[in-house]
Nucleic acid binder design. Structure first.
Lengths: 199, 199
DNA sequence: CCATGTCCATACGCTACCGTATGGTCAATC
DNA sequence: GATTGACCATACGGTAGCGTATGGACATGG
């Protein structure tokens, strides 16, 4: 009848979505495959096709959840440190450290999985929205820092490209990127360079 | 008997390798698939498996050729403009323009295809070598520009990450990246920022 | 003119995944 | 305590690609 509580053994659509995000982070979009996921959840396709109509429906759900979380994170990142320069530095240090510090399995690996499949019809619009949102935020910070609108946008783009590139490099050729203390000072210098504002 | 010239209709291993690079640029590593390639060459698997033992052998050949060409390009890029600053600016302008200007099907799309499959056992070492080679060159330029060794490496890394990130963005979200005249001035400002050297 | 080696077509079996169909289990409800 | 609906297992057919096997076609040298 109604949503019976029943035995707690039954899966929910959310369980599938979580597993999909895991697989996405671990093996890219190709790893979001129904039968392998079923195996990893200790169940079968039969379960999946009861909760979802399609593999695409699962992908859409996973993307939606990721986008939502990302939005939340962006909003949370807007912490009210009074000084803009400090706020910008804090933000950059945070994201760069997160994205190259982790073994790659952390937060940024969904990121990279999506970039690697950017042309996929479901991925493309999601990626576009998230990128624009982040870019807009970065731009606003640089503008507040004293750059003209056009220059702020350019600088935001540069900073974001540097971010993406570092994520990529940390994933594909981790040996070529500094670690530990060297990483920390690399990021310091990088921030220095990216936030220069000549009056 | 020997390598008969025969009718000029017969394919060579190089033909297959070229087709593989095309497919790689267009559809990523997954598109380097024997049967589809055969169809696109107007032949069948039978031909392929005469020239190559394996799909992996084809991939290896394609990667080797790409790496060789890249090496050539790096060497060619070392043009002897006397002034280091000018040389660096010329180089940056060239590569950034190439990688975001093209529709994405140009030179840099093999690039992106490889980055998207960076963990593949054949791709990873190739990518590592090429990346290190480029990074070393960039580092040397920044060093010659007056930066300390450590700072030169960091700056080289930043510049290369910015390059990769722009390539990625131009491919995944082309609408968010400037074009035409705006692109040109964006690159100017970007170079400005990346080549700042405070004494 | 036939024998040999080059180059390719076709057919086969295998794996991995998709989506469907169908029936079973079990808790909640009447 | 029979029924109903939520949830899942199993079996099926279909597609796409890999790699193998085998048998041509056909030019060339003997």
């Amino acid at each position: 009848m109604d949503m019976a509580i029943g035995k707690r053994e039954s899966l929910t659509a959310n369980d599938w979505t979580s597993a999909a995000l895991d697989a996405l982070a671990r093996g890219g979009l190709g790893a979001v495959a129904v039968e392998p996921l079923a195996k990893s959840l200790g169940t079968t396709k039969g379960s999946f096709y009861w909760h979802f109509t399609d593999r695409n429906a699962l992908i859409a759900a996973a993307l939606e959840r990721w986008e939502q979380r990302d939005t939340d994170r962006v909003i949370a990142a807007v912490d009210r440190t009074p000084d803009v320069a400090t706020r910008l530095r804090k933000l950059l240090r945070l994201v760069f450290t997160a994205v190259v510090g982790d073994p790659g399995a952390g937060a940024g690996s969904v990121e990279l999985a999506l970039q690697a499949t950017a042309t996929h019809p479901l991925v493309a619009p999601t990626l576009a929205r998230v990128t624009e949102r982040r870019l807009a935020y970065l731009t606003s910070l640089f503008a507040e820092l004293g750059l003209s609108q056009a220059r702020a946008r350019d600088r935001g783009l540069l900073a974001y490209a540097a971010f993406l590139g570092h994520a990529q490099l940390a994933h594909s050729t981790p040996d070529l990127v500094p670690a530990g203390r060297a990483l920390s000072s690399h990021i310091d210098r990088l921030i220095e360079t990216l936030t220069v504002v000549e009056d």
